[in-house]
C-alpha cells in the first residue's frame, strides 16, 4: 500500500454555537495512529467533523495527500476516508449485515443494488469485528458496545485509507474499550491511517504513534507519545492534577487523577 497522508495547515473553524478550533496543524500518515486528547467542549468533535468533510466551511487547509479536502467530491472522498461518529444510539431496525452494507452506498448509483462482492466484503468485515453470531440481528437489539463495533464495521466496508473516529470508546465498558483499541491497532498495522479522539490519556499510551493536544487557549500541539504526554502537560490540559506511574506489568506509564 502506498503511503497516504492527511495534513492540516492552520485549520480554524468557528460557526454559531459550535466549539471553535484555531490554527490546528496536524499530520498523520498510513499505518499511524494519531490520538487527539482534550477536555470536554474544547472542539474535538469540531476538529473531527472538519477532518472528515462534514464541516466544509473551515479556514486554512486540509490535505489528503496533496489534494484539498474541499475539492474532493463526497463520493470520491468516501472511498478514501471514513468516519466513525460518536453516536452509538443508531436508530435503525436494519440487521447488522444490512447496516454494514450501507458502507458500499457510494460505490453504486442510486438505481443499483449491492452485488455479491459487496456482500462478501461485509461478511469479511463482520468476522474482523468479531460479530459473526449477530449478523442477522437488528441493531436495535444490540448493546452500546456492539453498536459501536457495527459503526466501525460500516466505516471499514468503505475500504478507507484513513479512518477518523470520534471518541469511539466513550460509551463503552472496559472489555469493549479493549476490543475497539485492539481493532485500531490491527487496522494501523494493515496500513490504515487513524485519527481518534478521546478523553483518556491511557488509551493514547496503548495505541498512539503520535498524540495531539487541543489545549484550552485553543492551541494545538502534536508530537510522539513520550514527548507530549507528561504529568504537567496533562494536568494543564484537563485543569486538574494528573499523576503518572510506570507500571511494570503493562510496561507503560499509567495516568491517574488526584482527588486533591
Amino acid at each position: 500500500m502506498s503511503v497516504f497522508s492527511l495534513t492540516t495547515n492552520n485549520l480554524s473553524f468557528a460557526y454559531k454555537d459550535l466549539n471553535t478550533i484555531d490554527h490546528v496543524n496536524l499530520q498523520v500518515k498510513s499505518g499511524e495512529v494519531l490520538v487527539i486528547l482534550g477536555p470536554n467542549g474544547i472542539g474535538k468533535s469540531t476538529l473531527i467533523n472538519c477532518l472528515s468533510g462534514v464541516f466544509s466551511k473551515y479556514q486554512g487547509s486540509i490535505k489528503l495527500d496533496n489534494e484539498e479536502l474541499k475539492q474532493i467530491g463526497s463520493k470520491e472522498l468516501s472511498h478514501k476516508l471514513a468516519l466513525v461518529s460518536q453516536r452509538v444510539n443508531i436508530n435503525t431496525n436494519l440487521s447488522l449485515f444490512d447496516y454494514l452494507l450501507l458502507g458500499r452506498s457510494a460505490f453504486h448509483s442510486i438505481f443499483s443494488q449491492p452485488n455479491k462482492d459487496d456482500e462478501k466484503l461485509v461478511d469479511q468485515v463482520i468476522s474482523r469485528i468479531g460479530l459473526e453470531n449477530l449478523k442477522s440481528t437488528s441493531l436495535q437489539n444490540m448493546s452500546g458496545g456492539q453498536k459501536q463495533l457495527a459503526n466501525i464495521g460500516r466505516a471499514l466496508v468503505q475500504e478507507p485509507k484513513i479512518l477518523i473516529m470520534d471518541e469511539p470508546t466513550s460509551a463503552l465498558d472496559y472489555k469493549n474499550q479493549v476490543n475497539v483499541l485492539k481493532l485500531v491497532k490491527t487496522f494501523s498495522n494493515q496500513g490504515i491511517a487513524i485519527v481518534m479522539s478521546t478523553h483518556d490519556p491511557n488509551q493514547a499510551t496503548m495505541v498512539a504513534d503520535s498524540v495531539g493536544l487541543l489545549v484550552n487557549n485553543k492551541t494545538y500541539r502534536q508530537g510522539s507519545t513520550e514527548e507530549i504526554l507528561s504529568d504537567k502537560s496533562l494536568s494543564e490540559l484537563y485543569q486538574t492534577p494528573i499523576i503518572s506511574t510506570f507500571n511494570e506489568d503493562l510496561q507503560r506509564n499509567v495516568f491517574g487523577i488526584e482527588m486533591g
Binding site: 468533510g53 463526497s74 472522498l77 468516501s78 476516508l81 468516519l83 443499483s112 468503505q158
Partner: peptide
C-alpha cells in the same frame, strides 16, 4: 429501483454524507 438508497437515508445526515451520499 432506488429502494436500497432508502436504507442509507435512514441514517443521520452526517453519516450519510461521509458514506459519500449527498
Amino acid at each position: 429501483v432506488t429502494r436500497w438508497r432508502l436504507n442509507t437515508l435512514t441514517l443521520d445526515l452526517a453519516t450519510v454524507k461521509t458514506i459519500g451520499i449527498n
